[in-house]
Design a protein around this nucleic acid. Sequence first.
DNA 1: CTGTTAGCGCGTTCAT
DNA 2: ATGAACGCGCTAACAG
Lengths: 355, 355
Amino acid sequence: MGEKSMAKATIRDVAQQAGVSQSTVSRVLNKTGYVSDETRMRVQRAVELLDYSPSAIAVGLSKSRSRIIGVIVPQIFASFFSELFYIADRIAEQYDYRLLLCNSDANAERERRLIDDLLSYQIAALFITPVDGRDGNNAEYLNSIRRSGTPVVCVDRELPGIQCDGVYIDNFGACYEATREVLAHGWRNIAYMADPPVYAPGRQRLRAFEAACREFGVVVPEENRMLVPIEAWEKRESFLREIVSRKNPPKAIINFSKGWDASMMRIIASAGLRVPEDIFLTGLDDDGALQAYGYYVNYTPGTLVIATSAANLLMERTLCEGKLPEPTRETIETHLHSVLRSGIELPPPDVSPAP
Amino acid sequence: MGEKSMAKATIRDVAQQAGVSQSTVSRVLNKTGYVSDETRMRVQRAVELLDYSPSAIAVGLSKSRSRIIGVIVPQIFASFFSELFYIADRIAEQYDYRLLLCNSDANAERERRLIDDLLSYQIAALFITPVDGRDGNNAEYLNSIRRSGTPVVCVDRELPGIQCDGVYIDNFGACYEATREVLAHGWRNIAYMADPPVYAPGRQRLRAFEAACREFGVVVPEENRMLVPIEAWEKRESFLREIVSRKNPPKAIINFSKGWDASMMRIIASAGLRVPEDIFLTGLDDDGALQAYGYYVNYTPGTLVIATSAANLLMERTLCEGKLPEPTRETIETHLHSVLRSGIELPPPDVSPAP
DNA sequence: CTGTTAGCGCGTTCAT
DNA sequence: ATGAACGCGCTAACAG
């Protein structure tokens, strides 16, 4: 390509080169309005000659809408979110949209600032796994954004009072099934780890856990429970260290704190215990490496399904051009997905001390 | 806040509200030029009253530079890249920059398109783990971008002929040390998996592997080697399935294909073999879950170090305002980092069949 | 079918 | 110290 070290060509240069007006160039580029075949040719040749490509930022300003979709997740390095992002990117790309990614660090106030910032980019839509912590949430703010015409699609975490499109998983079903599985095997000396029941997901999970326990007539004592939010990893760690160092450690751990399984494995291993021979684990994470070790996963059908569903909804709304339909709410079914290393033997049932 | 459902306030609204001109408002907002204390106050109050925040996109157009940094990685879901991104984001954020993330899928042509697209956003800088595959690379293009004034910082993969800032790891050192570790233990029936030696990293790794082998007088036969690029996961899988199903499978696998370890674990496990009791693994990945299973890692000091270093360099260049210094090249030292599950016994040495 | 004109929201001279 | 005017690059409404 005969590129000189000149500055980037603008639409004006193209117009000049082709001997037409800017609007004509704009017309052929955007395929809007009628243009004679001959002029079209001339313009196209000028475009190639000058290696012209429009300034996304100028287009954005002019149309008061960019082709950027804002994405906010708690932390991108959690595998669920990075996979979610990847899939969303692949889909958005087909429509020529780009994703501007931010980490909220599970902090509502921070999230709020990020939203504001994204808005200043005239984003075409907002794709978010909203924070719902002790410092509140931005449900109302998100609602107002949607009302003002910017599509908002929530994933994985349903805020109370939210009135935006959303794709969620069946927390109750997943946790209920997982707990039953453990109890049905006969284990009684078990531990439970999860988010606190102050917000929707934690509440649903705890309800599910207790429902299953009740069904089996089992009571898990306080010292075998740890209900802390995601951020409190230190508490989780020390709790886990404590229980695995007991003379009679739990035979099974039910863990509904997402993104924490890998660390658990490490801690358990460093205590000289094996999974699942010494301690059986069950949870919501969907990690390939964990699966290799007889780990029960019931987040199936997994990230791919929820991500695809959410991303498609996102694009649907993004392409809506103003008239947003009523908010949709989809819940992805979950199914117990057990993976067991072949040849491994599950530890025998036990009897828990009466509470 | 007394928000009405009015459209977003512009700088003009603020000016009107404060009874001054737009330029004055601009001055107080950007702290540029003199403004009397009194006018400043009035403007600030108007800003708060109207809940004004500048349009990032308009600022970008007007200054011909946005506060967006383009980021291109092969695939964000590989843990190395998602951690890298997270850290870069945390640092960039301190300077009020946002990251626009793209996945190149290890495809050079695709990467080229992504670069073009990012450029159309007038990005302040480009942060990239460039592709270097059989379909070529964009070294020259990246160089030209840097020359034209946009900072380019490469991470983890050094392109031949690249003349941009870069932060890389010591591939030779890491692989040499890992191979020696295995051979020193006495294993001889071993397998080797890595990228093909057609590009720099693959070449360095193979050289390191062979240097160590030579040192121990060991020759690894063809049927125990699989040198294919990252994308060729099918070949890798079938190769692995084949070797683990042999009557006499390798005692150790040296794997220098990044991001593939977790899958390996799964395949090996599904063949009824255990790690490391039956097969010992060593590689470059830094995965917490893997570490729990007696897995040797020598990518230490790990993602955090390389990411921090790279991100700081990135911001330094981003804030350069035009005059870019000569390209810098930094290589992060690597150290063998072995993690072994306590109480586990390594498989005994063996003697490989003479080639 | 095509050119002219007027913004989009803001930074930046250049006067005053 | 402040305002008027122009331009960033492009789209859209209005004429012809």
